[in-house]
């Protein structure tokens, strides 16, 4: 089971600055954290789905330059 602590504004501010290069106000960080926490709870549950042998629905196509249009 995950042992993640609920997301708080301080953690979010740090992640935003260090990883996303996004510098946000304490008020925005608090707002984002409140919205993101339930999303993360959904993602935690989502990560437990058994998808080991399932390929992502992204198929690479080599570029074959197409011309024209309508």
């Amino acid at each position: 089971m995950p042992n993640r602590k609920p997301l708080d504004a301080k953690t979010l501010s740090a992640v935003a600055a260090e990883i996303a290069d996004l510098h946000i106000s304490p008020e925005t960080a608090k707002n984002h954290a409140a919205i993101l926490e339930p999303i993360l709870q959904g993602i935690e549950s989502f990560r437990r789905l058994p998808l080991k042998d399932v390929e992502p629905a992204v198929i690479f196509h080599p570029v074959d330059r197409m011309r024209g249009g309508e």
């Binding site: 979010l12 992640v15 935003a16 990883i19 996303a20 996004l22 984002h32 993101l36 993602i43 989502f46 990560r47 789905l49 998808l51 399932v54 390929e55 992502p56 629905a57 992204v58």
Partner: peptide, 17 residues
């Protein structure tokens, strides 16, 4: 900005599933 790449790929795997 806060969504991890692994979760995006997982979502694409879920679409197949």
């Amino acid at each position: 900005h806060y969504v991890l790449a692994k979760d995006y790929i997982r979502a694409q795997r879920f679409r197949t599933h």
